[in-house]
Amino acid sequence: MSGTHIVLHDTHGLIEEQLPLDRAPYEVLVTAVLASKDPDLEPRDYEQIALQLTGHARAIAAHVRHHSNALPKNDGRSALAEIVLREAAARLSVPLQGTARCAQNRARLVRALYTQLDRLTAVLPTAL
Rank of each mutant, 00 (worst) to 15 (best):
Ile6Asn: 05
His9Ala: 04
His9Arg: 03
Asp10Gln: 02
Asp10Ile: 01
His12Tyr: 14
Leu14Ser: 14
Glu16Lys: 15
Glu17Ile: 05
Leu19Asn: 13
Pro20Phe: 07
Pro20Gly: 12
Pro20Ser: 11
Pro20Asn: 10
Ala24Ile: 06
Tyr26Met: 08
Val28Trp: 06
Val28Phe: 08
Leu29Val: 08
Val30Asn: 00
Val30His: 05
Val30Ala: 04
Thr31Phe: 05
Val33Asn: 10
Leu34Met: 11
Leu34Cys: 02
Leu34Arg: 09
Lys37Val: 00
Asp38Arg: 12
Asp40Met: 11
Leu41Ser: 10
Glu42Thr: 12
Glu42Ala: 14
Asp45Cys: 05
Glu47Thr: 13
Leu53Asn: 13
His56Arg: 05
His56Glu: 11
Ala57Trp: 05
Ala61Gly: 07
Arg65Ile: 05
His67Ser: 12
Ser68Leu: 02
Ser68Phe: 00
Ala70Val: 09
Asn74Ala: 03
Asp75Gly: 06
Ser78Leu: 05
Ala79His: 04
Ala79Asp: 02
Ala81Arg: 07
Glu82Phe: 04
Ile83Arg: 13
Ile83Cys: 05
Val84Pro: 07
Arg86Leu: 05
Arg86Val: 08
Glu87Gly: 03
Glu87Asn: 08
Ala89Glu: 13
Ala90Ser: 14
Ala90Arg: 15
Ala90Ile: 08
Leu92Ile: 01
Leu92Asp: 03
Thr99Ser: 15
Thr99Lys: 15
Ala100His: 15
Ala100Asp: 15
Arg101Gln: 15
Arg101Glu: 15
Arg101Tyr: 15
Gln104Tyr: 03
Asn105Ala: 14
Arg106His: 14
Arg106Ile: 04
Ala107Thr: 06
Ala107Pro: 03
Ala107Gln: 04
Arg108Val: 00
Leu109Gln: 09
Arg111Cys: 02
Ala112Gln: 11
Ala112Ile: 00
